[in-house]
Design a protein around this nucleic acid. Structure first.
Lengths: 198, 198
DNA sequence: CCTACCGATCGGTAGG
DNA sequence: CCTACCGATCGGTAGG
């Protein structure tokens, strides 16, 4: 489910273009990356890209909504689960960390470049992001009510946690002295301890 | 010290241009914001901007290095202080939160758009950022050695904390239901508790 | 998938 | 500070 391919089968030309576009958008930003550069990396002329996609903005749409849909899907799964509040939050955090590690470029682009979407996709994305954070905050608030979590502003906490994870960028780029698994455990420890009552 | 003005005196035309540029760079991104738009907001023709600045990139240089120099200055101050490790970290975090609240646009731009600097400024900035994080991590490592802080990977922790604070963006934009001071205390509580031994 | 090419917009300059 | 204008580059199209 979702556009991010987990196997090597069925990789179409369009998928390759999207993948290369994500990589360039991440490196240079959406506006600074040109269709000619994407074409270069794919190995065709710029005009040929338009046999597979409608516009540069369509590439951004696909990348952003692919990620957003995965988030929504995960949120529904977690909400429907029987997990404790703390376990729900941990599950969401691990999902975000995994996404950052395994679908780095897509997640990075969707996080930092979604502002360049054009309407109606832009407002759609704004809604999805707002809604996701509200649902996340609602879980935290439930935890506070049940006294599993210390009294803290839930929306602030959501922002802290999501942006903390979104910042793995620099780790990824630097000389990876720590493994993905180690990174994940370190982040989980830090973030979950920020939640617990002392 | 530093270019960010704290009084209303001595605001030159150039300062106004930089301020408006920071605002537009934050809203649309460096590449997407045009000199003509900046000129519009300032209230002159695009060509007139060049009587005060040399290039679009100079605007970004000024914004980014202004912020970076403030960070370096603060770091030196903290390192030279007699504070405990935990107090040093708290002081740095409060500095970052304050910067995010009071110099929002400059800090935001310097954080997300520095990649568009051109050399030699680009590599200079990369060095400054790397160095800053290393010095921050060194403080944390000292705290671990002194058993004031729980065993956790110091570099990961720095990234978590800095990005958590850098993400206040969304709070600032949304309907500010929480005051700056409240936000600061919530963040400090969360982040400092992630550090302490349980 | 390529060649050829378009209108628009960009950062920036000349000259007053 | 403005008018007038430049070369370069952009996203995208026509036609084969």
């Amino acid at each position: 489910m979702g556009r991010i391919k987990t196997t090597n089968k069925e990789i179409s030309r369009k998928d390759i273009i999207i993948e290369k576009a994500a990589s360039l958008f991440k490196e240079k930003g959406f506006k600074a990356a040109s269709m000619r550069e994407i074409a270069d990396v794919v190995g065709v002329e710029a005009a040929s890209l338009y046999n597979h996609i409608k516009s540069k903005n369509e590439l951004l749409n696909i990348i952003c909504f692919d990620v957003a849909n995965r988030y929504t899907h995960k949120m529904e799964e977690v909400e429907a689960s029987e997990l404790s509040v703390l376990a729900k939050i941990e599950s969401l955090l691990r999902f975000h960390i995994d996404g950052m590690i395994h679908h780095f470029e897509q997640v990075y682009v969707s996080d930092r470049e979604w502002k360049h979407l054009d309407n109606p996709y832009l407002s759609n994305m704004q809604n999805q992001r707002r809604t996701y954070r509200k649902r996340f905050a609602a879980i935290i608030e439930q935890g506070i009510k049940q006294k599993e979590i210390k009294k803290i502003d839930a929306s602030t906490t959501v922002l802290i946690m999501l942006h903390a994870i979104g910042g793995i960028e620099s780790w990824h780029r630097s000389t990876q002295k720590i493994s993905g698994k180690e990174l994940e455990e370190n982040m989980i420890t830090f973030l979950m301890d920020g939640l617990r009552k002392i």
